[in-house]
Design a protein around this nucleic acid. Sequence first.
DNA 1: CAGTGTGAATTTCTTCACAGCG
DNA 2: CGCTGTGAAGAAATTCACACTG
Lengths: 225, 225
Amino acid sequence: MSAATVSRLPSYLRALVDAATAGSATISSDTLAVESGTQPATVRRDLGSLSITGTRGVGYDVKELVAQISAVLGVDQTWPVVIVGVGNLGRALANYGTLADRGFPVRALVDTDSALIGQRIDGVIISPSAELPELIEQHHIAVGVIATPASVAQDVADVLTACGVNSLLNFAAASVLVPPGVEVRSVDLATELQILSFYRQRSAASGSGIGVPLPAPVHPPRIGS
Amino acid sequence: MSAATVSRLPSYLRALVDAATAGSATISSDTLAVESGTQPATVRRDLGSLSITGTRGVGYDVKELVAQISAVLGVDQTWPVVIVGVGNLGRALANYGTLADRGFPVRALVDTDSALIGQRIDGVIISPSAELPELIEQHHIAVGVIATPASVAQDVADVLTACGVNSLLNFAAASVLVPPGVEVRSVDLATELQILSFYRQRSAASGSGIGVPLPAPVHPPRIGS
DNA sequence: CAGTGTGAATTTCTTCACAGCG
DNA sequence: CGCTGTGAAGAAATTCACACTG
């Protein structure tokens, strides 16, 4: 299965859960494409590569699709997490229920700041970084979250991977090198902002002519939950 | 310039700033490739597509590269930001200095919760969502940050784009549809976790044999700033 | 008929490999 | 000699377009 396909599965799953909630029993590749921001042919190929088959003239069975994609993504399992670095970001993540809700319970917290060590966040004690290997073994840690300054991100990744953690979520503003077999996902605000900047400049340059007037502000739809 | 190239520019810039800090005057495509996790040939093509030229036998001029890439990414300019939704995430972002440091000062905050309206975060007052159009005009908002629940993300995007904001940073767990010319970058923890899950399952399946023993935990390198 | 499943065409992206230059 | 710049090859991903089927 291609990396491109995998990267789209979460958005399919999201759209499908929405559709299920809305009561749809089936969904067409056209609809799923619109909901997940891709093309119908791409949807069909992706689902085909998971050996998921629809019904001609009808579409795909929503419940089956949710079950299959969930299984492929492994969202039905639980992966204990360690967060390395309990600064602003690390603390926010530790308190952020979404991690635990998604099957990623935070079982260990690590920092080098002695002022933090011994404190508890949501019941989990903050340990010194030297204890990382023991913690990983004790709690069967599967995922390491790197929330340290960029300067130590590589060191952290080295320790984590050496201890057998082969899924890393990297929030540090640095790319880390890992051995083969280890998967790293990087989430970096600066990167996103810079890419946005690029396209903003670009569209300002091409769109600032008189031919492309700013649309008049509309009466705003109600924003609220 | 291809989207793939643009997506790599931030990591080049990061590596280059590091190199400059370390005192390097020039850098080869080989080194830059290692530092940014890509291939030398890719680096050379990317730089070539920016009409950046190096010196044969030597490499690229670090300072010039930093200047050129910074200009292309527009990081030398300032883009006022509005954050829509001041929950946990929105508040964290509003307080997060990195946004302002990168040329994205938060000039407006919006929420529907009347308990929040009128409060200030870092000097910026929280306004009711109905005022979004006026705020955008007053502050020349260029970037909209969506930090609302998924259910209203699309509505927020509609208002923002209708008011001429064509750079969106979307933290909601929903994909939003936007008119052509508008750039959206989505940052979604659930998506990242699900993709990690997929590869973790995959490597567990292929790597759990006796042939691939868990590496013994090494003596951990010092983790600290 | 509406919508899947899929060969084939196309586009996009990456990598090779090497001539050529400082 | 070391490293760039790039044509050409290759690989990957997307999209077209249509036969086919429930």
